[in-house]
């Protein structure tokens, strides 16, 4: 599983907004022009990004091995035919070209995950989405991250309780209903308590944000992100 690793590389020191723009720009560029040269260029670019982030491409493929394995089945599924010749190469090749586009996206995503602390992404989201919506997204992300393990513990307890009462012997749809309803009850109780706690602490629209600032090193990355994002426009020329 990929997660943030502290470091001092060039990619670590970039502003998260620059890195987010490059990710989205790359996705737009790769999907808008599904050609071999564009895919090859994007793969080389993202290999460079991984090198700058001191992250091995093999480690990325290992981390996403389930994704890669399922995607690799795409060309096989596309090529299989229900009659002679049983396997057709043209659709399989078309599928392989589509699947290969995914590789640079996984690489750039992995570079982002391992070089950007979650709190920086939260701050970036809060700054990129204007007004009160951005405020709610920023605080909401922080709270979801905080409450995820708490709810996981709650729901594990619910599961254990169902199991202790012989729930394993009941049909799967009954177990699903029991688990969903009991989990929701616990969740909404926590929601009521969280609401009370936020109001008690004067939950306001104007709290203090963590500092973020574009540095000189961000400008070329921002330009790259903008160029990638706008690259489909060249199709109109």
């Amino acid at each position: 599983m990929l997660s943030y690793r502290p470091g001092e590389t060039f990619v670590h020191r970039l502003d998260p907004r620059s890195k987010l723009l490059v990710q989205f720009g790359l996705a737009i560029a790769v999907f808008s022009r599904p050609t071999v040269p564009v895919t090859a260029a994007a793969t080389l670019l993202t290999l460079g990004m991984l090198a700058a982030a001191r992250l091995s491409p093999l480690a990325v493929i290992r981390a996403y091995w389930v994704v890669v394995a399922v995607l690799a089945l795409g060309p096989v599924i596309a090529g299989v035919a229900l009659g002679p010749p049983w396997f057709r190469f043209e659709p399989a090749l078309r599928s392989a070209r589509a699947v290969v586009r995914i590789v640079p996206l996984l690489f750039v995503s992995a570079a982002y995950l391992t070089t950007t602390p979650v709190r920086e992404t939260r701050a970036a989201v809060q700054r990129l989405i204007p007004g009160k919506a951005g405020q709610l997204f920023g605080v909401g992300m922080a709270l979801v991250i905080r409450l995820f393990p708490v709810l996981y513990q709650d729901i594990s307890e619910v599961r254990d309780a169902i199991r202790a009462r012989g729930g394993e012997r009941r049909p799967f749809y009954v177990r699903a209903r029991l688990l969903a309803v009991r989990s929701l009850e616990r969740t909404m109780d926590r929601s009521d308590r969280l609401g009370m706690a936020l109001r008690a602490r004067c939950f306001a629209w104007n709290p203090t944000l963590p500092p973020l600032a574009f540095e000189r090193r961000d400008y070329p990355v921002l330009v790259l992100g903008a160029v990638l994002t706008l690259s489909p426009l060249t199709l109109l020329l």
Binding site: L136, G140, L143, L147, F148, L151, I155, S183, S191, D192
Partner: peptide, 14 residues
């Protein structure tokens, strides 16, 4: 807001 936060966290667990 707190309902949405908790449903998001519940979805993550589910």
């Amino acid at each position: 807001f707190t309902g949405a936060v908790l449903i998001a966290a519940l979805t993550a667990v589910l």
